[in-house]
């Protein structure tokens, strides 16, 4: 037997599911969950905090979806993610100045976040020369490598997240990759330039 309340809830769910706005939102965000999870982990450096951050981002995005023009969903979501993270940091550390907040955004490690045993085991099999080369980069260089090469952001998306011009992202990426290349060449991992 189905109670009236259950019928009401079911009807409500059907109404929402049939809502083209809800369906459009769903399509836009499901495609970006991996990127959001990666960037959130980089910002928070913690799996649980990253998941909370993405959920809060999705909630805010859903509430504001009516004002979204539908173009560049990833950039839109990353902006919300970034602002949500800044708000969370600001609540925890109200003493931080704006420029200090901005400084917290670039990734500080090549991977960020705490890793499970399985992830750690997999990473141990990866090339230690590359890992060491990345670890030796400056924080700014590591940040662009992390966002572009590891998280899959475009130059523009990385520039927006770091609040620097796109040319700066390209320049840092060039220098960072050049340093990795030099180290790989020194270890015979790639051929040296003639």
């Amino acid at each position: 037997m189905v109670h009236d309340e259950e019928v009401a809830v079911s009807a409500s769910v059907i109404d929402v599911a049939a809502d083209p706005h809800a369906e459009q939102f769903r399509e836009q965000v499901l495609a970006e969950l991996d990127v959001l999870a990666r960037v959130a982990r980089r910002l928070t450096r913690d799996h649980h905090a990253a998941e909370d951050l993405v959920q809060e981002t999705l909630l805010r995005a859903y509430r504001g979806h009516a004002r979204f023009d539908g173009r560049h969903p990833r950039a839109w979501l990353l902006t919300i993610l970034r602002n949500t993270h800044l708000n969370q940091v600001r609540k925890r550390r109200p003493d931080l100045l704006e420029d200090e907040l901005a400084q917290r955004l670039p990734a500080r490690g090549s991977e960020g976040g705490t890793e499970g045993a399985a992830e750690q085991a997999l990473r141990d099999q990866l090339d230690p020369v590359v890992r060491d080369a990345l670890a030796m980069l400056s924080a700014n260089h590591r940040a662009v490598i992390a966002l572009v090469d590891l998280d899959g952001l475009t130059y523009q998306e990385a520039a927006d997240l770091l609040e620097v011009p796109v040319g700066t992202v390209m320049s840092r990426l060039h220098r960072a990759r050049h340093k990795v290349r030099t180290r790989l060449e020194a270890h015979g991992k790639v051929e040296e330039r003639p």
Binding site: F25, R26, L30, L126
Partner: peptide
């Protein structure tokens, strides 16, 4: 070589986030 350093994502975490989206949108 750099991209092979990409840390893996927790598939259960992505699944939970997808479930969260379903909950939001009533799907």
């Amino acid at each position: 070589a750099i991209r092979r350093q990409r840390p893996p994502l927790d598939p259960d975490g992505i699944e939970r986030l997808a479930g969260f989206v379903d909950g939001l949108t009533g799907a």
